[in-house]
Write a protein that binds this DNA or RNA. Structure first.
Lengths: 166, 166
DNA sequence: TTGTACTTTCAAAATATTTTGAAAGATTTA
DNA sequence: TAAATCTTTCAAAATATTTTGAAAGTACAA
């Protein structure tokens, strides 16, 4: 496999994978492209390399900035904006954990707390209550795990990795 | 909030959430409905309660069985099939972790291993190699975490939960 | 064997998401 | 101020996913 093939394969794989995670292909491919680029890229560059429209590039670059995964970079004497990805992969992981926690876990915790309060006064309601309690525990576990990742230092994570990996 | 409202809210919330996770609404709602139902339900029951078509119900019930989240149950003297959800929520979590690992992590690990082998003989290739190594580590961490959940006993998980939760 | 009661399949329709591209909006330069 | 260069917006088009429902399939009973 040549380097260019590897690059294409990475960008393509990341894009395919993303859809399973509810992220659209363009956003994932933009992130992949910027991740492996040693130099900042301008909008035109990414449009050409990924063959996507200006609007698409603009919107998804903004979303990536919202996620804290890429940054704008201004070059002296250059009018246009360049983009560069966060290259510390553990920081990327922490950032993703943080966002997913905020967007996905927190709202569920709130709904579950509300639903746990329903009185268990019939067999059906009792079952409902049991399920809500159980889900609260599992979601609590997920929440704590994400929190640990978010707060952890890189070394701790690598340690955990090696510990379980043996 | 009445019990029926709570039930609707749960089914609806679960369905909305699922789309963020790349699971379709019907499948998530079917799972939610069966989770809180103390009795096994027949296809007609779920069709009516969720207002979905027969084909939709049939396909998504099968998918849920593939995920190991629900079971077919035959009632003596009854011709039609009934469905019941796995009620042990920790077992559900382990099952989901197992499936996601198989479907999402394993393929990435393979691609990353392949791409790590590309020689780092230019600045661009060196950067590429660094990123692949970094991603390997993070994906390895995710893989190990999922593995721990998959293999862990309920008690261990609850322990972890309480430990971090303080 | 035929009829009945179910389940599954799958092409077409409905719906949801993503992408495009041209127009409007900024910001700097002349 | 006007022109040039770049970015953002958003309605419409393209694409992808989900859902429907009727037909085909299956299995049991008479």
């Amino acid at each position: 496999m040549t380097f260019d093939e590897a690059k294409d394969k990475f960008i393509h794989t990341w894009g395919t994978l993303a859809t399973q995670w509810g992220i659209n292909r363009s956003m994932a491919q933009l992130h992949a492209l910027l991740l492996i680029s040693p130099e900042p890229l301008a909008t035109e560059d990414v449009m050409e390399q990924l063959q996507i429209s200006r609007g698409n590039a603009s919107m998804n670059l903004r979303d990536l900035m919202d996620w804290g995964l890429i940054y704008k970079q201004l070059k002296p004497g250059e009018r246009r904006e360049f983009f560069i990805a966060e290259k510390d992969i553990w920081k990327v992981a922490r950032q993703v954990a943080k966002e997913r926690r905020r967007r996905e876990i927190t709202p569920v915790v709130e709904v579950l707390n509300e639903l746990k309060a329903i009185p268990a006064d019939t067999p059906e309601a009792a079952e409902f209550h049991r399920v809500m309690e159980g889900l609260s525990n599992v979601v609590g576990f997920a929440d704590n795990t994400l929190n640990a990742v978010i707060k952890a230092e890189e070394n701790w994570l690598v340690g955990q990795f090696l510990k379980v990996f043996r």
